[in-house]
């Protein structure tokens, strides 16, 4: 068994080794310098972007698209997913529609997003919400579907038979682990679509990356790639701590 400290050390060695290898191959002239930036040059570029105020603007703007898209996609996904699992008629009504729409990737909605909303933050939020919706929809549907029917008997034996008491005392808490799992997957999926949704000109990280790449400023591209990675790690860590608190009843 590896101790925790040794594992941490190994992971760190892997990362530093990768960066060192990257730096050395470039300096040795084994890779053309115009295509890949020097890792050691990245921090200076980040500082420059922050000093120019570009970094803050882009991150703030992307965060807005992300936040709104996530909020709408997650809440609708959970609502429709839970209803589909609880109400057989609703389930039958929408089953084929869901099967039809599900395979369409979020990015395929870009033409409609532009036609309906123009090149606006709303369009970006709309595209983000689509991917997030499906993840949460399927996660909550299967979470509710998988609830032990024994709990329904408990509800019936102890007078909690009406829809709302049962929903809040049995169904939602029982399905919470699955629903929270869907939310977490949506957090990642959201960031993936943010960049793509902004590539066609809506202010944000994606637009800035597109701009930089057309000027062959690969160092700027890498700065924003790392920005996304950092923001995602932060949000995911925050979410996991909330999730742990909500599910503290689990063994």
């Amino acid at each position: 068994m590896m101790t925790r400290r040794r594992r941490l050390l190994a992971s760190l060695t892997g990362l530093v080794g990768f960066l060192a290898l990257w730096e050395l191959t470039l300096r040795a002239g084994l890779l053309p310098g115009a295509l890949v930036p020097l890792p050691s040059a990245i921090p200076a570029v980040l500082v420059a972007e922050i000093n120019d105020g570009i970094w803050q603007t882009m991150v703030f703007s992307s965060f807005q698209h992300y936040g709104i898209g996530l909020l709408i996609g997650s809440s609708l996904g959970i609502l429709v997913g839970v209803c589909a699992a609880l109400l057989p008629t609703f389930n039958a009504l929408h089953a084929w529609l869901a099967r039809l729409l599900r395979p369409i990737p979020p990015l395929a909605w870009i033409p409609f997003a532009i036609i309906w909303f123009g090149i606006t933050p709303t369009a970006a939020a709309f595209i983000i919400s689509i991917g997030v919706f499906w993840i949460n929809y399927f996660a909550s549907y299967s979470a509710v579907e998988a609830i032990d029917p024994g709990y329904d008997e408990v509800a019936a034996a102890f007078g909690q038979v009406r829809l709302f008491p049962r929903l809040f005392k049995i169904t939602l808490p029982a399905a919470a682990p699955g629903i929270l799992g869907g939310l977490r997957a949506g957090l990642g999926q959201g960031w993936m679509t943010v960049v793509a949704a902004e590539l066609f000109g809506i202010t944000g990280i994606g637009q800035r990356m597109m701009e930089a790449s057309s000027l062959l400023a690969t160092d700027v591209v890498v700065v924003y790639m790392l920005t996304i990675a950092g923001l995602y790690a932060l949000i995911d860590a925050l979410f996991v701590s909330i999730q742990r608190y909500l599910l503290r009843w689990q063994p």
Binding site: Y151, E153, V154, F158, K169, P173, A174, Q250
Partner: peptide
């Protein structure tokens, strides 16, 4: 009221 074979407490 009822007592079940497995206790069926609500774990949450």
């Amino acid at each position: 009221s009822m007592v079940f074979q497995s206790p069926r407490l609500l774990p949450w």
